[in-house]
Design a protein around this nucleic acid. Sequence first.
DNA 1: CTGTTAGCGCTTTCAG
DNA 2: CTGAAAGCGCTAACAG
Lengths: 325, 325
Amino acid sequence: MELARRLGVSQTAVSAALRGRERQLRLDAALAGRIRREAVRLGYRPNVLARSLLRRRTDTLGVVVSDFSDPTFGILLNHLESAAFAARQELIVTGCGASAAETDAVWERLLRRRVDGVLWIDRPVHLGLGRLIRLWGTASVPVVGIGTAFRAAGAPAVVFDSEDAVGQLVAAMPRGGRSPYVFLQENPGAEFSRWRLDCLRRRLDVGDALSSRRARCVAMNIAAGIKIERFARLRVAGEPLRLLGDQDFTGLRALVALEAAGWHAGRDFALGSFDGLSWLRNLGAAFFSVEQPLEEMARRAIAMALSPPAARRIEMLRGRLLGRM
Amino acid sequence: MELARRLGVSQTAVSAALRGRERQLRLDAALAGRIRREAVRLGYRPNVLARSLLRRRTDTLGVVVSDFSDPTFGILLNHLESAAFAARQELIVTGCGASAAETDAVWERLLRRRVDGVLWIDRPVHLGLGRLIRLWGTASVPVVGIGTAFRAAGAPAVVFDSEDAVGQLVAAMPRGGRSPYVFLQENPGAEFSRWRLDCLRRRLDVGDALSSRRARCVAMNIAAGIKIERFARLRVAGEPLRLLGDQDFTGLRALVALEAAGWHAGRDFALGSFDGLSWLRNLGAAFFSVEQPLEEMARRAIAMALSPPAARRIEMLRGRLLGRM
DNA sequence: CTGTTAGCGCTTTCAG
DNA sequence: CTGAAAGCGCTAACAG
């Protein structure tokens, strides 16, 4: 160690002083101080590579994000960083690549860096769940999934409870009547969208049994744009239409279009959606949404990656309803 | 190397075969194939730590993101990953921490990992530009800033040309008349917001000189909500109000509120904003926006970090106008 | 308290 | 074409 030579002390002393291990080594406090001061003066930066190589652990978790541009994942990442900081772990965040081959490369690189564990945020659109789980099987370190995609993967994961969220939304909407529930899909092929629709259907079936009345559920694809006539046709006079966006952006688009057409939230329609992005709070009361417990998800995911294998399993977390009509 | 022992060949041969250097070493092709097959069979993963330690370079760039939840940065990150892949570099993405102390820690950790360069996406809200630039000075590797915050920092950076963007927006709006330009601010303290307002003011001054007519510019803070009366008061009968959101979300909020109040885009107001987030394309023609050239920014930033010092300087990139009224 | 020693897993050099 | 040897920067064990 160059620093040691310059100061004329042993490498051991330098190493100990720099990591605050002076008590253990019964190192002179004054000396330790001198070493630390000199280290700062010289702009000395320990080489983590060498350290990790020797210790055979990196205190680092890899994080694979299936899409950086999803704001929900962005907020989750912010929380993950805090949680990692608290757990004295570093994070290496990376995208998932644009093709199966790139995803393999990303995965491989993370493991070659000898991360101590991997968190995988949602399934990449180009990679089937089965294939992904098989990939995880090649790891020598713990892998934890985050996201609804992993609800039935059988792998350790932290999952937002969509089933419960749908229940909260339905409970907050006007009951009874003949107007249908309209499930709005911006990207009907997306897994989360289909899954939430399934949850809604199941939920309404349960409602049926209890109220002995048939609540209709209509799925509407609005990817190509919103046609007001389609809404008008579905509506039963005097009753508000019950709209559920498959996520906040979808609900927002509907809101813009309906208001522009002279429909009024609360009178003509009730609107809810998923994820509770914070900027919704600025839109007033015309909209409600079930917020994902992202901070808790982050904490749990990190804890799970760091815990012994036996403690790793699927955890379902419930959301919280924001806003009311 | 364990693999070498198992196969009964030399470490040299294994190393060469695995990195496709067999020609240089004049290694037997059959042997190289055998080594590679065996490596796959055994699930062998070279240790990047050891490799980097010896080579004294990591082929890795650090990326510091000031806010993961900003969708613009998210898209930029996706592009950065592609660009890095193309340049055979890896990326270590990290948040910037929530306080000055955490930012220091993030920075330190990146350098201790011996990244070959750092890209810094926008200035953290809790850290002054001066302080940040000073921090950069402690690096032994190139640092490239990305974002408007660095337009005058004197450090190498890739910057979206807001001045030009304002020009494009103003040019696309109705000319003349007495209605003011209203600049909508959701977070008036934010640097980008103030800077874009400044640009607008300067632009309108230039317009003045040419048309010898005074165009008024009003800044309106809408953080607390949108009051329609404030807009009504500003409007000159028969002329559309010219609205500029400081970013897309801001413009969107205004759109929702104005349409809900019975104002019509095109007739009663013209609305533009910044950044060109892709989901705007779904909102129809009521809105236009200047898109940041994120893909190009990503490519340039990576290239700049990899180029010799003399080639590193500030690059201003122009945006593209999306949508028309 | 300090110095020495022996590596962590890999690449490179140079002599076979 | 192969093998031996040196060493990247650090830590841990142990003998002074």
